[in-house]
Computed example of a mutant assay.
Amino acid sequence: MPETRERRATRSGFGRVLVAVYGIFALSASARAGVQIATKFSEAPLAFSLSALAAVIYIVATVSLALDGDVWRRLAFAACGTEFVGVLVIGTYSLLDRVAFPEATVWSDYGQGYGYVPAVLPLVGLFWLYYTRMRVRNVKS
């Protein structure tokens, strides 16, 4: 039996919803970080810098999930993986050292201010990347 390789685009089907949610988070985190940095950066520079970093990662995830190709797929995997590690590290750090986080970030308290979506979203993104990976299928001739 001949084999064919096929892969679903990450932006197809449920991927459209995923790209939209990432886009909303990219916009939200960017706006939040921009306002925080512009108005009160000296009050919590670490927290506000981490909000800006989260915004950049959400932007990268949005764009890379919306585009096709191996490079974009690897970049999406790196962005979702970095986001998940960031949520775990920053979430834990923000709970252990409240002095370092006098103001909330997107990822502080594991994304509590955003309904914990920041803790779940990268797992959904990683699952989607796995689900849409290259598959070898046998084709009847």
Rank of each mutant, 00 (worst) to 15 (best):
W128K: 03
Y110G: 05
L96Y: 00
S28V: 14
E103N: 09
T92F: 05
L95C: 04
I59M: 15
T62V: 02
Y110S: 04
S28I: 15
P2G: 08
G23W: 03
L126S: 06
A20V: 01
V106S: 00
V63T: 03
S49C: 03
N138W: 11
V106L: 05
W107G: 00
F14W: 14
A44W: 09
S28F: 15
D109V: 07
A54W: 02
T82P: 08
I24S: 05
R135P: 10
S141D: 10
V21L: 12
V19R: 01
F14E: 07
F41E: 00
P45F: 09
E6M: 13
L50H: 00
A66M: 12
F84K: 01
E83I: 04
G15D: 10
V21R: 01
V136Y: 08
F101Y: 15
L95T: 10
F77I: 12
G115I: 02
K40Y: 04
P102D: 02
V71M: 12
W107I: 02
L129G: 06
M134F: 10
A29C: 09
I59K: 13
P102G: 11
C80I: 13
C80Y: 12
D97M: 03
F77Y: 12
L27W: 15
S108H: 03
L53P: 04
A104D: 15
F41K: 05
G81W: 08
G125Q: 14
T10D: 13
F41Q: 03
M1T: 00
Q36C: 10
T10S: 12
G111I: 09
V63P: 04
L96W: 07
A104S: 13
M1I: 00
G23L: 04
T62C: 07
W107Y: 14
A100S: 14
L65S: 11
G81P: 14
V124W: 02
I90K: 01
F101P: 06
D68I: 05
L126M: 08
V85P: 03
V87L: 11
P2H: 06
L96S: 12
A104P: 01
G113N: 08
F77E: 12
F127Y: 10
L126I: 07
G13C: 01
F41C: 08
F101E: 08
V56P: 07
G69I: 03
V85A: 11
A55N: 02
G115F: 06
Y110W: 13
R98D: 00
G86K: 14
L65W: 02
L88K: 05
E43V: 02
F14K: 08
A26Y: 06
K140E: 04
R73G: 11
L121I: 02
S141L: 11
T4Y: 08
D97I: 11
A44D: 00
W128G: 00
L53E: 11
V17H: 15
K40M: 07
R74I: 13
L67Q: 00
R16F: 01
E3W: 12
R73W: 08
L88P: 02
T39A: 11
L65H: 14
E3Y: 15
T105H: 13
S30E: 10
R8A: 10
F127C: 13
S51Y: 06
G15S: 01
A66R: 05
A78E: 14
D109Q: 08
F14M: 08
